[in-house]
Structures are given as C-alpha cells and as structure tokens.
Amino acid sequence: MKKKTKSLGILYIVSTPIGNLKDITYRAIEILKTVNIIAAESINHTKKLLNFYKIKTKITSFNKENEKAKSYIILKKLIINENIAIVSNSGTPLINDPGELIVKMCHKNKIKVVPIPGACSAIAAISSSGISTKKFCYEGFIPRKEKKIENMFYNLYLEKRTIILLETSKRILKSLNIIMKIFGKNRKITFIKEVTKFWETIKKTRINKLIKWIKLDKKRYKGEILLIIEGNTNLHQKVITYNILETHKILKKFLMNSSAIIATSKIHNINKNLLYKYILKNKMT
C-alpha cells in the first residue's frame, strides 16, 4: 500500500504597487484574496492596498526586526498546508526587503515558492532612463558614511554596465558630489524621483549639471530617489582605483611619498606621473 504524501502549502512572493495603487496584476489580487495569510513588511501600509481592492485576508507583520522568528512560524504554517503571500511596502519583495531567509527555508524543505511578478522600482527606473539597458548591475542604497561612499564608487569606477542605485533626499547632494569627484563631471546620469507617483520626475543629464539643477529647488529632490549611472566607456585609460590608493597609503608608512608613488605605480602598472597628480590634487601627500 502506497504511503500518502503529505500536502504542503505554497509561498507566494507577490509584487505590489510602488506608488500608484492601480499598478498591480489581476493574478496578484487573486492570490492575496485566496491565501490563508499575508505576511507584510508594514501592516498599516499594506492595509491601504487591501482596503482599496476589498481584500479581507488575515495579515501579519513580517519585517527586518522580526524576520527570523516569523520565518519559522511561516514555515510551520506552510508545512501544515497553509498558503502564504509575502508582500513588501512596495514593488517586488526581497529586493532590499525581508524574505530571503524564508525562501531559503522553503527550498530546503521542498516547499513550493511561486513569484507573482509586477512592479519593481529599479526596472521601472532603468527602462525610462535613456541609458543602456543591455547590461546593468543593481547596487541598492548608497552607504551613509563618506568613506564608505568613496570606497563604493572607487570600486565601481571600472564598471562597464549601467549602475542602478537608491538614495534618500537627505543625502543625495552629498553622494552626488562624491560621485562627481570619482567618476568625473561628464558621466551621464538619470535622476528619477517618486517613480509612478504624482510627483514623478525623470531627469537625464551629466553629473555636474544634475547637481546644479537640483540645487535650484529643494522640492526637486524630496522623495524616493533612484540614480541610473552610465557605465565606464573609457576603459582604455588607466584609472586611479581604491586598491591603488590603499597600496600607496600602506607604502607611505614605510617610504618617502615619492618612493611610495613609484612603488605603487610599478605594482599596479600605472603611470607614476598620473598617480602623483591625482594624489597632489586630492591632498593625499
């Protein structure tokens, strides 16, 4: 006699609107209506969407603070054949949002994971940016501290693909000035604010011009911001990377500055005069 196979629930990863409540699929609405529980990053935020579509499904909190504990609770419910939908505050879950742990747990326990595609701010932004969409990399939020921002963009200097970034209105000018210092003033960039919302703004220009433009009116950079930056198109030129500067910094502790520059240029096969001018210009001697 065959042993009866135990039924398991399904975990749905449901994309929700970024800002405009109408940016949701029929399938997503159907799933949200029929699952046993909706696990939401913010209950109050998600209730606005549920009320708009008259969805009465039970809702539970699932955020960065309680993700680990709630993942085990959700797993137990899935094992007893309950279906659960994960939603973030906006867009596609797991992109800078909680959910990675429970998805891994589901794969480990052979529980079906079903993505319900829809809105994603990064994809919406790059599709409207006017910058190459053939190859791109998503880097998420720009770090808060200046040194970490510099490290990030020194490491991205050689990146040929289009770069997608997120930033807040409070830090946008600081970050743009650091990007300009490292990438140069002429790198193409598209500034996208409040995508899909009433105050949606899309501005493609060069970095130095963007800084001047947003300084003219504080309202221009209030809200949720994405930056789409053109990849490096001048890779035939040798550039000063973060690793080169770190090598120089270490060698300078043991050698005279001129000797440290010569040694660094030989280690990284870069022109010593180019390196010297950069260090002098940025007062790193």
Rank of each mutant, 00 (worst) to 15 (best):
E100I: 11
T247A: 02
L11E: 12
N232S: 03
T241M: 03
W213I: 01
G223S: 07
I123S: 12
I279H: 06
S71G: 04
E230V: 03
K281C: 04
F191K: 13
I55A: 11
Y278C: 03
E41S: 02
V113P: 14
I29C: 01
V195T: 06
K48M: 07
S7W: 00
Y276E: 03
I116C: 08
R220N: 13
Y138F: 15
N51F: 01
E159P: 08
G91E: 04
T190D: 02
G91H: 07
K110E: 08
H268W: 15
I80K: 15
E30F: 05
M152G: 03
Y154P: 11
L21D: 08
T16C: 02
T133C: 14
M284K: 13
K218C: 05
I192P: 09
W213P: 06
A85T: 08
L274E: 11
D217F: 06
R206F: 06
L11S: 10
K174H: 04
I225D: 15
E41M: 10
E139M: 14
R171K: 13
F52M: 08
N232R: 00
K2C: 07
V239S: 04
K238F: 05
S90G: 15
L49Q: 11
A124Y: 09
T5E: 15
R144A: 06
V103K: 13
K56V: 00
T60S: 13
T264W: 11
T285W: 13
S265P: 12
I189Q: 05
E67Y: 03
E82A: 00
N269P: 04
S265H: 09
S90K: 14
C106G: 11
T34L: 04
C137V: 15
Q237H: 08
K185A: 06
L210Y: 04
E146L: 02
G231L: 02
E167K: 06
K188T: 01
I261T: 13
V195Y: 14
L226H: 00
N269R: 14
I240Y: 09
S121I: 00
R171N: 11
T92S: 04
L245M: 12
K204F: 01
F191E: 09
T285H: 14
N83C: 06
H268Q: 02
V113M: 03
K253I: 04
I43A: 09
N81Y: 12
I116S: 07
L275T: 13
S259R: 15
S259A: 14
F52I: 02
S71W: 07
A119C: 10
K222C: 06
I267L: 10
K253M: 06
L32V: 02
A69G: 00
Y72W: 05
Y221A: 03
N269L: 11
N234Q: 13
T205M: 07
E30P: 07
Y221D: 05
V113Y: 13
S128G: 00
D97H: 06
D23V: 03
Y12N: 04
T57N: 09
I214Q: 13
K56R: 13
L50M: 08
K204Q: 06
I31V: 15
T241N: 10
I142D: 14
N36S: 06
K148G: 06
L101V: 09
R171I: 01
L75N: 10
I55C: 12
N177Y: 02
P93W: 01
I116A: 01
I164L: 15
I202G: 08
A69D: 15
L227A: 12
K215D: 03
